[in-house]
Write a protein that binds this DNA or RNA. Structure first.
Lengths: 208, 208
DNA sequence: ATGAGTATCCGTATTTATACGGATGCCCAT
DNA sequence: ATGGGCATCCGTATAAATACGGATACTCAT
């Protein structure tokens, strides 16, 4: 019997999920919580589930924070993220944070069951579409991805708003050469040829 | 009694919605369909509902196509779009296509009921968040928004990939001046100062 | 004490973008 | 026949970006 907790701030969703999952003989819903804090409390206090179905966008303590706090703590519990976000960056972030699976909220029933069973048996579950999104995101990041510094981010923000190097220098009270250097460094970090590609890529990477 | 049809390709969602809506004494689910075509057939054949809860991303005939086909046809039926997409462009497109309301799939129960009642009584229903997203999109479009021509879009694509005017001229077998003119015209249409802002705005407007 | 990273700034040069106009020809709707 | 929109191309000029290096000083971890 696979013990499952559902963590999502919408009762409708939890109820629907509970009804669906309970229809299968090998699944048992042992908890249904509406906040990250409730989930943490349940994990500390009660019988540990085999799997947590975890929404990302919960108030106060979101899914990412939950993953961060449980990291290395409840090792026997596996987390399948369920999210509306079909964005490679969210998915990559979840995978890095230790998620064992990722499903979109419009996943169909059979796939949900398959995911639950696969993750229960020790595998990770990411379907082809999810994999493709992750690959796209990693390809965007490139081989030697280094994050932008605070100043670079600031300059990038101004550039994306259409300001010239001269204008940015004036706003930040620095030399034109300083801004030029920051622009050049960003272009190197993101491996792009010019400003158009910089803005394009930075947008895709959610740096703007 | 408010008669309602639910149109969504995921049975779990339809079932959950049906259970929730049926819990209210003034609502009656008179149909539950999984495709746009089924919805069209139901509207042609059966008693018309007062309201259709319409998912956007259905296979073959999506929600936009449904709205387009019903435009001016079933005038007494009101459409509330239910979508995962919290994107001003989707929302604006729905409103332009005649939707009477727009809800995100993580809307809470009470708000769903409110929306159904308001739309039934002749109002439109868009909450503050949805309105804000629309406003942002309209602000982006600006005052005298004109769409890009095919050639402009083609040039824009190349520009966003980091190509210079010279390179684009070579690829398209036209003069450098031609590409220069296209770039200048796009910048005028989108009311931006330079290429960085062009790419930034075009991305937000989903032109790239 | 040392080294790496960050932020700052420089000289010189070339390439690219942008701006100010202007023009012709084709297609299509009126 | 006419006019508007689109795609094409031009001369001249300035502004901006990019590129090739180089440099100093501060902070923080080792």
């Amino acid at each position: 019997m696979i013990n499952i907790i559902i963590a999502d701030d919408h009762q409708l969703f939890r109820d629907g999920m509970k009804a669906l999952i309970s229809s299968q003989p090998d699944f048992l819903i042992i908890g249904s919580v509406g906040t990250g804090q409730e989930l943490m409390d349940a994990l500390e206090r009660d019988t540990l589930p085999d799997i947590v179905l975890l929404d990302l966008s919960m108030p106060v303590m979101d899914g990412f924070e939950v993953l961060r706090q449980v990291k290395g703590k409840f090792r026997s519990v596996r987390f399948i993220v369920i999210s509306m976000h079909e964005d490679g960056i969210y998915i990559s972030k979840c995978v890095r944070s230790g998620a064992h699976g990722y499903l979109l909220k419009n996943t169909d029933n059979e796939e949900l069951f398959t995911a639950l069973r696969r993750v229960y048996s020790g595998e990770k579950y990411f379907n082809d579409e999810i994999k493709e999104l992750m690959i796209q995101n990693l390809a965007l990041e490139g081989n030697d991805y280094r994050p932008l510094t605070d100043r670079e981010s600031e300059v990038l923000q101004h550039v994306s708003q259409g300001k010239t190097t001269k204008e940015i220098a004036s706003i930040l009270f620095v030399s034109i050469r300083t801004v030029e250097t920051h622009r050049a460094n960003m272009m190197k970090k993101l491996d792009v040829q010019n400003t158009a590609e910089l803005i394009s890529k930075a947008t895709q990477l959610r740096l703007i």
